[in-house]
Amino acid sequence: MLYQLCAIITAISTAVSLGFAAQAYWQTRSSQTAAATNARYALSRSAALAIAALGLLVFHSPEYLTALAVAMTFVQLFDGVIGRRISTFKTVGPTLTGVANAIVLALYLMQ
């Protein structure tokens, strides 16, 4: 049960990250600036993480889950720090997702 819950929260975390990266890409897609290039890199990495998270729902691998959940916890916590300069929503949303991911992962690892 905790494996599935942690995998779902990790997948949600990757979807949130992918959503922000997609938004940045769409806002800069017709531009050739450094911001547009950075948005493309963020989108490719976020898409890869989202695809990897889907694997957690298909294949049961505690090691794989732990690695991706830790990575996404830090991604979301860093996104929350970055979001402080933008809006409350972009601060609170990623931060809560990161904290939730860390708590469920800790519970899963302690069982």
Results as ranks from 00 to 15, higher is better:
L109W: 08
L96G: 15
A22D: 07
A50Y: 00
Y108V: 08
V75N: 03
Q4V: 08
T91W: 03
Q76G: 03
Q76L: 09
F89H: 13
L77Q: 05
A11M: 12
Q111F: 13
Q32K: 14
L65E: 14
F74Y: 03
A100W: 02
A69K: 10
T97W: 01
T73M: 06
A42M: 04
P94M: 05
N101K: 06
I51T: 07
A47W: 11
A67E: 06
L107M: 13
A100D: 04
A11E: 06
R85N: 12
Y3T: 03
T91V: 04
R84V: 09
Q111T: 15
L2S: 13
L2N: 13
L56K: 01
F59R: 10
E63C: 04
A71F: 13
Y3H: 05
Y64R: 07
V58R: 07
H60M: 13
L105A: 15
R40H: 12
A47K: 01
I51K: 01
L109A: 04
I86Y: 00
T37Y: 12
Y41H: 04
L5A: 14
M1S: 13
F89T: 07
L56N: 02
V16T: 12
I82M: 02
F89K: 04
A22I: 10
I9D: 02
Q32E: 08
T33R: 06
Y25H: 11
F78V: 14
T37I: 15
A34G: 04
A71S: 14
V58L: 10
Y41D: 05
L68H: 05
A11D: 08
G93W: 00
A34N: 07
A24P: 10
S31N: 04
F89W: 11
S61G: 12
A39Y: 07
T14L: 05
M1T: 11
A22R: 03
Y25F: 15
A53T: 10
A67P: 11
Y25D: 08
H60Y: 13
F74W: 08
L2G: 12
V104Y: 04
S17L: 01
V99S: 11
V70C: 07
V70F: 09
I12H: 01
T10K: 02
F59V: 15
A52S: 13
L109Q: 14
R85S: 12
L56A: 12
V58M: 05
G83K: 00
I103R: 01
A34R: 09
A42W: 02
S30G: 14
M72Q: 10
F89I: 06
S44D: 12
T37A: 15
I9Q: 00
S31K: 14
E63V: 10
A7I: 14
T33H: 05
M1G: 07
L5R: 14
T10V: 01
G93C: 13
A24T: 05
Q4K: 06
A100Y: 01
T91H: 00
G55A: 14
S87K: 01
